[in-house]
Design a protein around this nucleic acid. Structure first.
Lengths: 237, 237
DNA sequence: CTTCCTTAAATTGGATCCAATAATCAACTT
DNA sequence: AAGTTGATTATTGGATCCAATTTAAGGAAG
């Protein structure tokens, strides 16, 4: 009885995203199969799926390796997410929000506001913000009613985040980071306002810019990464 | 010795795209395996891959089915492609084209021009245009130097085209169709001009609009489809 | 000491076998 | 006659086996 209640693809994806399997690490079927106490069959399927997701790169006759991405790759993926979520925001504005969606968004925005009401911003707050933020973005994508957006995003979502692991924050400088988060959250308010007012073009523009808030703020995240103090969201702020 | 020189995923993808496997058709592993003279293993891998590509939908305990998409899905996917290729055009403009890329694009544009120089526009011309067009778009994506764009597009490329098969043209009305193609080709010229002039925003705008040329021109393609006179490109015009 | 050739190990790809589970159909009971 | 229950079938998921191929290593010869 293997311990995993969930399927192998999910397990492996988590192992990559959490950094348990490091970027550049070479993966062969048999060792991984033994490590997860399953046979090669599900591993083979998982490797191919993860390759399509962009988390693994196939090496001709040497298995797969965890994809490592450059800063350029990350910036490129952020641009892509920007235009996709921008499109989502515009279509959401065009479609209009349901009352239920409006209510939930207001609730999420208030939740975020409260995080910045306190004087201090802790790592626990980052976690809370992350959950709130994730749901907020998901709501807009749902409101766009365009399944192709979600499809394109899933392909991209994890892509840039295989090499680094977790939140794009400098844990040693939380005061500074709090300002970044607060700014990003202001953009949430503006996006919500634009969508509510059916201002599609404006909503799109804000959302595109908002994508850069993920980590484009200052470009020194490479240094942070090397210091091990960096963590990167697999979802935009 | 299996006959297929190419891999199973490609084979199945072609069968779906050409309509040999029809939209809504239910696919079980064993029958398909026998039909392609391979074992279940490669079929299982292929089904999952094709599911991720968006060509197949999984049915809980009943196998897979060829995804059928609605007109709304198609329009949504066109919007997505619009923003992605728009981004590509903008980044291409920002990066600038190499001399080699300029030369090839000019060559492609000339090739297209010649197709419309004749009085008549034949189905063979459509085929020629298709090849030229595909290369033109690919060149812009390459020039963008953003691998995330290509990744997001592959996920989307086939999505809307599982239900219909081939070219988005009304074969019974080639004169009219020729005008559509000619217009789309003019947009190619404009995009090329904007990119060459490093006008990123303009290049992006034209490209976004150009996506609609794929079939958004007149919205009666549903009727055409029902008449069996419709065919849809798996690449934009 | 270096280089080339031969051989063994590693590794993937495909085929088949076995188990688990859900769907379908038929029979039996009320 | 209809509904329910049980059995059979269909179908997927995982494990193991076999073949093909490539890489790596080691030994022999120059």
């Amino acid at each position: 009885m293997t311990s995993s209640g969930l399927n192998i693809i999910t397990t492996l994806r988590q192992m990559i995203l959490t950094g348990e399997l490091q970027a550049g690490e070479r993966l062969a079927e048999i060792p991984i199969a033994e490590r997860l106490h399953v046979s090669r069959t599900p591993i083979r399927i998982a490797f191919r799926a993860l390759e399509q997701e962009g988390l693994l790169t196939k090496l001709p006759r040497r298995g797969y390796e965890v994809r490592s991405v450059s800063a350029i790759d990350i910036e490129g993926a952020i641009e892509v997410r920007g235009v996709l979520e921008g499109l989502a925001a515009r279509q959401a504005a065009e479609n209009g929000l349901s009352q239920q969606q409006v209510d939930e968004m207001k609730m999420l925005l208030t939740t975020g506001d409260l995080l910045f009401a306190d004087a201090v911003f802790t790592e626990a707050d980052v976690e809370s913000y992350h959950h709130m933020n994730q749901r907020f973005h998901q709501l807009i994508i749902e409101a766009a009613k365009n399944p192709a957006i979600q499809a394109a995003l899933t392909r991209n979502a994890h892509m840039p985040f295989a090499s680094v692991n977790a939140l794009a924050i400098d844990k040693n400088n939380m005061q500074q980071e709090a300002k970044r988060f607060a700014f990003a959250h202001q953009q949430h308010h503006h996006v919500f306002h634009a969508i509510s007012a059916q201002q599609g073009a404006r909503a799109e523009g804000i959302m595109r810019e908002h994508a850069h808030a993920t980590l484009g703020f200052d470009r020194n995240y490479h240094k942070l990464e090397q210091r091990g103090a960096l963590t990167i969201f697999s979802q935009p702020l």
